[in-house]
């Protein structure tokens, strides 16, 4: 691990300013992903701004009847929250489908949104990787790609974004709240927060340098049956091959978002009009234009069948 200096910020704006003013500075929340990457020298910050004292660890009602989730609410606390379990069950289900109990106790809401890909070529510093080292190429293309993206990828990167939590947040039309170094705040829809790779795969999301996530807000509850099905190589503690988050209403209408298939949670609202016609009708719209590799083309059929199983469960 490269050496770094460390400070604890007192306010969100102060934290944002501290990171913005120093090249090589990064925020540190739970640290469960960042420290791992620092040990491998994939991340090499020269200064860490610890945000644990910012008091962003509360879950509150919004005036609109939704929920405001502080950036530092742990994954465990968010999954266990009584309101989340009752009104946004898909979010609890997605969170407890990810990681381990120990990791969920330390990992934060904002940190989960900012976790980096688990593409094996991103992790192997001996390999070219445009996300880790822009311009070096992509060893995943033509390499072992079973876990990697089937849609939204580019000639420069086929990495997937690994979060389960974010798939549910995308489904629920969440908004990411941030503060910048100059104290200005902004709201970014989850739909726009994570970037597709294009020719700049090194940028995972829309945040600017020194821009700090302060909260994630959810709109009013939408009712329905909340489900999250995750298909993986073992029953627990593994990243998704494919996951489906869905909220399905009594009449069979609803929403569906997919994880494990792209560089961001994958949801195509236009395809949801076909929810009452079955999984195939939805999946054909969701995965139109997919560019899978030979090794991961199975994911498209797997996603359709996982959605079919979710729909069957919702019918009861």
């Amino acid at each position: 691990m490269k050496s770094f200096t460390y400070e604890r910020a007192k306010t969100p704006a102060q934290a944002a300013a501290a990171v913005a003013k120093q090249q090589g500075a990064k925020f540190l929340a739970g640290g469960t992903n960042l420290l791992d990457l620092m040990k491998l020298e994939i991340e090499t910050p020269t200064h860490l701004v610890d945000v644990q004292d910012l008091k962003l660890d509360r879950i509150e009602r919004t005036d609109e009847g939704g929920l405001r989730i502080g950036a530092l609410v742990t994954n465990t606390a968010l999954a266990a929250d009584a309101t989340v379990r009752r009104d946004y069950g898909v979010l609890t289900r997605a969170i407890v489908a990810g990681a381990s109990g120990q990791l969920r106790n330390k990992a934060t809401t904002a940190g989960n949104l900012l976790q980096r890909t688990r593409c094996p070529y991103f992790y192997d510093t001996n390999q070219p990787c445009n996300k880790r080292k822009p311009g070096t190429g992509c060893a995943a293309i033509g390499g072992f790609s079973r876990q990697l993206a089937v849609i939204g990828s580019s000639d420069h990167c086929i990495a997937t974004y690994p979060s389960d939590m974010a798939v549910a947040m995308r489904l629920l039309d969440a908004t990411v709240e941030t503060v910048k170094a100059d104290g200005k705040t902004r709201s970014i829809a989850m739909a726009d927060f994570h970037r597709l790779p294009g020719d700049t795969p090194e940028r995972d999301n829309e945040l600017e340098r020194g821009e700090l996530i302060t909260a994630v807000t959810l709109p009013r509850p939408i009712g329905g049956t909340h489900l999250y099905h995750k298909v993986r190589d073992r029953a627990s503690y593994a990243f998704a091959l494919v996951s489906v988050a869905a909220v399905i209403q009594k009449d069979g209408s609803g929403r569906a978002a997919f994880g494990g298939v792209a560089a961001r949670p994958w949801r195509v609202e236009a395809a949801e009009a076909a929810m009452t016609q079955g999984a195939r009708a939805v999946a054909s719209g969701v995965f139109a234009g997919a560019k899978p590799t030979e090794e991961n083309q199975f994911k498209i059929l797997l996603a359709e069948r996982t959605l079919a199983s979710v729909m069957a469960q919702a019918k009861g």
Partner: peptide, 19 residues
């Protein structure tokens, strides 16, 4: 490396002592 910090189990390898 699991230890209990402030009543909750965590991976002590993924946490800096200064945190």
């Amino acid at each position: 490396c699991t230890v209990i910090v402030n009543g909750e189990r965590i991976n002590s390898c993924l946490s800096l002592a200064v945190q």
